[in-house]
Design a protein around this nucleic acid. Structure first.
Length: 440
RNA sequence: GCGAUCAUAGCUCAGUUGGUUAGAGCGCCGGUUUGUGGUACCGGAGGUCGCGGGUUCGAGCCCCGUUGAUCGCCCCA
């Protein structure tokens, strides 16, 4: 409020690609997380917490040193001891590291779930921030296709309970076991090499680095070559086919709809067998709302024992954008004191109601009119008005804001410690809110 | 890392070919109503037009630089 503008202190800018949330966006975010936490308990997935920072090697090894993902797109820095630290760009590698270093093999098969912030050093664009947030579920130490199936049923129920399964499709593919995958990869490279003259410059570069990625190139010049490339099916071993069949049978048994997408790939070598994405047509280019797969090679790549594992992750912000309506926090009651003495009484009553389990609030300042305005704007069910008249008679005035009806109540009855939340609510609202309380 | 677009009040935005004192809606504060919200009317506060330089008699508008944002490319674990 200083008038001396020359002395103005410059406000630091937020870090690029980070965001602050309040109101609608924050409510959506919280609703997604709460729903996830509820569903994850239904499936017996234990809550796990892992660090936000890890030695860079955790992610560098899991992602493969060759990719420029590691060199260019991780949020890495040196700490004061000179060690290279990375802000986690995903959950899976950190959980895999924790599995090894804590000896969680003893709990295998281990079903865990977590959520929190992740970081990638990328140029921000629509739906892609440097700090973003994901839900994550993993099953470690199980080579059963039933684990894949259960994980997918979990994901399916999450999306349904969030009310965003409309227009969302589960697309599924298998990358086979290590042998299948190698044979297919060799066939793909051969196919692309023989058509290299028709490929875009980008895809020619991919041919060396990551040939599988050519399959979902956006460049129209690549489409004919990519579309005519061989599917993995011809290269699947019998075991790989059986595994995939067991996953899809499990989905059918649980009543989860799915679609085969033979073009769905994972670039990294440790992925095996199942790869999946829940995709929507409602978000433009970024159509994936939840994705994952089986990564039987990862824990070994981190120096652990050969351990099969499967998991998925989903962007919280993206799920929040898809929510039909905004679930809002609202207060049941707003206390409105008239005069300084009433303020203390309201403070006491407010604490009493809250201890009973009724949500309520009270403004810090303003006259009656102002406080009523705020009460109305807050979306509260009713205002509780206490002034000199009420105090003299040991009563309070309850005004139902939607109907405008109000009534006097006996303060002692409301305060009575024997009355719980439900009964107290009835005492306050009966007769003025239009509900038939006697039916309770 | 590359490209395009943009930056005016707390928010969303107008601002003519460069020309007086930069506007609107919403929000905020106050009043009409000293114990009653939503509607209405009246009034008020709030801006170095992102920042720095240049051209000009004169710049919110034109030029250069810079910072930031948005959208796309690369990448997508």
């Amino acid at each position: 409020m200083s008038k001396d503008k020359s002395a103005k202190i410059p406000t630091p800018q937020p870090v690029r690609g980070t965001q602050d949330m309040l109101g609608d966006f924050a409510d959506r975010f919280a609703h997604v997380v709460e729903t996830f936490e509820r569903v994850r308990r239904l499936y017996g997935y234990k809550r796990v917490e892992v660090p936000v920072i890890e030695p860079t090697a955790v992610f560098a090894r899991s992602l493969g040193e060759t990719t420029d993902v590691v060199s260019k797109e991780m949020y890495s820095f040196e700490d004061r001891g000179g060690e290279s630290i990375t802000l986690r760009p995903e959950f899976t590698a950190g959980i895999a590291r924790a599995y090894i270093t804590n000896g969680w093999q003893q709990f295998a098969p281990l079903k865990v779930a977590t959520h929190g912030p992740l970081f990638r050093y990328e140029r921000p664009q629509k739906g892609r921030y440097r700090q973003f947030h994901q839900l994550d579920a993993e099953v470690l130490g199980s080579d059963s296709p039933l684990a894949d199936a259960e994980l997918l049923v979990f994901a399916d129920q999450l999306l349904k309970d969030l009310g965003i399964s409309e227009g969302v499709t589960l697309t599924l593919n298998t990358l086979g076991d290590a042998d299948s995958r190698e044979a297919w990869r060799a066939a793909l490279v051969e196919h692309f090499m023989s058509h290299r003259g028709d490929l875009s410059e980008d895809s020619l570069a991919r041919l060396d680095k990551n040939p599988l990625r050519i399959l979902d190139s956006k460049d129209p010049r690549d489409r004919p070559v990519a579309d005519s490339a061989p599917d993995i099916d011809a290269y699947l071993t019998g075991e790989a086919q059986d595994f995939f069949g067991a996953v899809t049978s499990g989905l059918d048994a649980a009543g989860v709809a799915w679609q085969r997408n033979a073009r769905l790939v994972r670039g990294l070598d440790y992925y095996r067998h199942t790869a999946f994405e829940f995709v929507t047509d409602r978000l433009g280019a970024q159509g994936t709302v939840l994705g994952g797969g089986r990564y039987d090679g990862l824990i070994e790549a981190l120096g652990g024992p050969p351990t099969p594992a499967v998991g998925w992750a989903a962007g919280i912000e993206r799920l929040g954008m898809l929510l039909e309506s905004t679930p809002q926090d609202f207060l049941e009651f707003v206390l409105v004191p008239v005069g300084g003495e009433a303020e203390m009484l309201c403070l006491e009553l407010q604490a009493t109601l809250r201890r009973k389990g009724l949500s309520c609030d009270m403004g810090f300042r303003g006259n009656l009119k102002k406080r009523m305005q705020r009460a109305d704007a807050s979306g509260a069910v009713a205002a509780i008005i206490i002034g000199e008249d009420e105090m003299r008679e040991g009563e309070i005035t309850v005004r139902h804001l939607a109907s405008g009806q109000q009534a006097r109540r006996n303060l002692a009855e409301i305060r009575d410690a024997r009355a719980g939340a439900t009964y107290t609510r009835k005492l306050l609202l009966e007769g003025i809110d239009g509900n038939n309380w006697s039916a309770e």
